[in-house]
């Protein structure tokens, strides 16, 4: 792996650790949003069990969205992005590192906390495992797609809501297969197809999204 990749990954993770209070806010947001639904739909256990996976997924999607603008904006303001663009390495290398660091610091914690929420929705232990596994495969896709939007909306007024409008429709397939995997497992259809499709989606996103984000960053900085 290249030096620039490791340098950026280490730095961004260090920064995430130094500003861990911010990350806790995003994580709390995830928990709060997911806890709101029972107040809206009632506390019928069967109903909650039915909507649980979908609610956790939507909350994870929104929490990812909340954290997305931070992926590039600080480095954009401070001039670090300019320096990175002038690195000998192709931009896609360090863009990948930034996305990886972003997922490790914002996506992975969501996966870790999700069983707790699943418990609150009365999911069975095995369903909880499936949900966490689906989130583990799905949240990197969210970060990858989100990176494109974050790069395109960098420095714009109202970037947050614009970002939501741009990337949420693109994230719908992940939501469908992610939440669907739990239902599929529960109804006895089996997980294989869902997980394979999500895995395929992850590889496609890994192969394409860093390039699109790098191109978007170049355009934004032009």
């Amino acid at each position: 792996m290249s030096k620039a990749f490791i340098a950026v990954l280490r730095r961004d993770l260090l920064l995430a650790w130094r500003s861990r209070a911010d990350l806790l806010v995003a994580l709390s947001f995830f928990v709060v949003v997911a806890s709101l639904f029972p107040f809206g739909v009632g506390s019928d256990p069967d109903q909650l069990r039915a909507i649980g996976p979908g609610v956790v997924w939507v909350a994870a999607l929104l929490a990812t969205l909340l954290a997305l603008p931070r992926m590039f904006s600080q480095d954009f303001d401070s001039g670090v992005l300019e320096q990175l663009l002038l690195s000998q390495e192709p931009p896609v290398v360090w863009v990948s590192a930034k996305i990886a660091a972003h997922w490790l610091s914002t996506g992975l914690p969501l996966v870790v906390v999700s069983p707790l929420l699943a418990l609150m929705y009365g999911l069975k232990p095995s369903a909880i495992e499936v949900l966490a596994l689906a989130l583990l495969i799905g949240t990197p896709i969210l970060s990858l797609i989100g990176a494109i939007g974050a790069a395109l909306t960098l420095g714009l007024r109202g970037a947050g809501s614009l970002l939501a409008l741009l990337v949420l429709p693109l994230m719908v397939p992940v939501l469908i297969f992610g939440a669907g995997s739990v239902d599929a497992w529960a109804s006895g259809i089996g997980l294989r197809a869902h997980l394979l499709l999500m895995g395929g989606g992850l590889f496609a996103a890994l192969a394409l999204a860093p390039f699109a984000s790098a191109a978007a960053l170049r355009i934004t900085m032009d």
Binding site: G149, L152, L170, A212, A216, I219
Partner: peptide, 9 residues
């Protein structure tokens, strides 16, 4: 160019 990228994506 940004519009072009999002159209392609």
């Amino acid at each position: 160019k940004a519009g072009a990228i999002i159209a392609l994506v």
